[in-house]
Amino acid sequence: MNPKARSNRGMRIWGIIEKELKKEEVSYEVYFTEYPHHATDLARVVTEGGDYLTLVAIGGDGTVNEVLNGVVRLEQITFGYIPAGSSNDFIRDLHLPVKPEQALHNILHPKYYKNIHLGQITCGDTIRRFAVSSGIGFDAAICHEALKSRFKNFLNKLKLGKLTYMGIAFHQIVLCKPELMTLHIDGCKTFQFPRTLFLAAMNCSYEGGGFRFCPKANPEREALDFCIVHGLSKWKVPIPLLAAKKGHHTRFKGVDTLRCRKARIHVDTPLAVHIDGESCGFQTDLDIECSKETLRIIAGC
């Protein structure tokens, strides 16, 4: 449970959840995160014994990421999620309930399960899983800024947190410096994209608060979808960006998509990298792939 989710509204959501758990007389243990990546440490401790259990994350996409990176053996858990973040992109393709009471009911009385794959990113000595997406360039720079944005906290208090990424996006358009990007996929094909704004590696179809960058991405498939935006002048960027809310951006020149299981990415100048909206610093070389192992998740309808 991330008490600081959505600008410290997490404890209010926990109060709702706790009341329902007591009403249904459910046996459970709760762990509250206290610092960045604490959820990873907690999940590792909880799962290292090898017991089969139901593990539930309450927070945003970043909390989901931290929890899944701490799980020792994915095959030994059933994963449940109660969204409490600003964007909650993880729930969209899985059709999970938004309201805490409904999300909890879905977990306590499950009707549908899905076995989903996760993405994995390697940069230097760091290896991390991701559930929703990873990216390099413009979209990652947006995530970096959002993590420290007072504007995000202000909008969250007004229940308008989803506008955070849109506002920051226009700021980052001014700052961004497109780079030549080389992409090797599945060890057999090489592409070069001049003046690349960003590359998004998508396990799910949405990121950034509902931008459908890869409309055909499916976490149940053992493959990742990639969206590469390149060769556009800055004043043209907002047009496909806005169209991405409906997944219509792929019709524009300078927007390419492809699907593969493994990819190696290189840029000469270090660019911002994100993993499920969390910062992974600035990198020049990345290896991204879809895992063969699957995670059993309590899904919606």
Rank of each mutant, 00 (worst) to 15 (best):
M1F: 08
P3R: 09
K4P: 00
S7H: 14
R12V: 10
I13C: 06
W14A: 08
G15P: 04
I16P: 02
I17N: 02
K19S: 14
L21R: 02
V26N: 07
V26Q: 08
S27C: 05
T33E: 09
Y35H: 15
Y35G: 05
P36G: 10
H37I: 06
H38S: 09
T40F: 03
D41S: 11
T47K: 04
E48H: 11
E48S: 09
A57Y: 03
I58Y: 01
G59M: 07
D61A: 07
D61C: 05
G62M: 03
E66R: 04
L68A: 08
L68N: 07
L68C: 06
N69E: 12
N69C: 10
G70F: 07
V72Y: 11
E75H: 15
E75F: 09
Q76W: 12
Q76T: 12
T78N: 13
G80S: 10
P83F: 02
D89W: 02
D93L: 03
H95P: 04
K99M: 14
H105D: 13
H109G: 09
Y113V: 07
T122K: 14
G124K: 07
D125N: 11
T126H: 15
T126C: 15
I127V: 15
R128N: 09
R129Y: 11
S133N: 12
S133H: 02
G135F: 00
G137C: 05
A140F: 07
E145H: 12
A146Y: 04
A146R: 14
K148I: 12
K148C: 05
S149M: 07
S149Q: 05
R150W: 13
F151I: 12
N153M: 08
L155H: 07
L158V: 04
Y165R: 03
I168F: 01
I168D: 01
V174C: 10
P178V: 03
M181F: 00
T182P: 00
H184L: 02
F191P: 00
R195G: 05
R195L: 10
L197P: 02
F198T: 01
M202N: 12
Y206G: 01
R212H: 15
F213K: 08
P215A: 11
A217P: 10
A217I: 03
A217H: 10
P219A: 06
F226T: 00
F226N: 01
C227Q: 03
C227K: 10
I228H: 00
V229H: 04
S233R: 13
K236G: 08
K236H: 09
G247P: 10
R251G: 11
F252K: 13
G254S: 08
L258M: 15
L258G: 03
C260Q: 01
A263H: 00
V267F: 00
V273T: 10
V273Q: 06
H274R: 06
I275W: 04
G277E: 08
G277A: 10
C280R: 11
F282G: 00
T284C: 14
L286A: 00
D287E: 15
C290T: 07
I297G: 01
I298G: 09
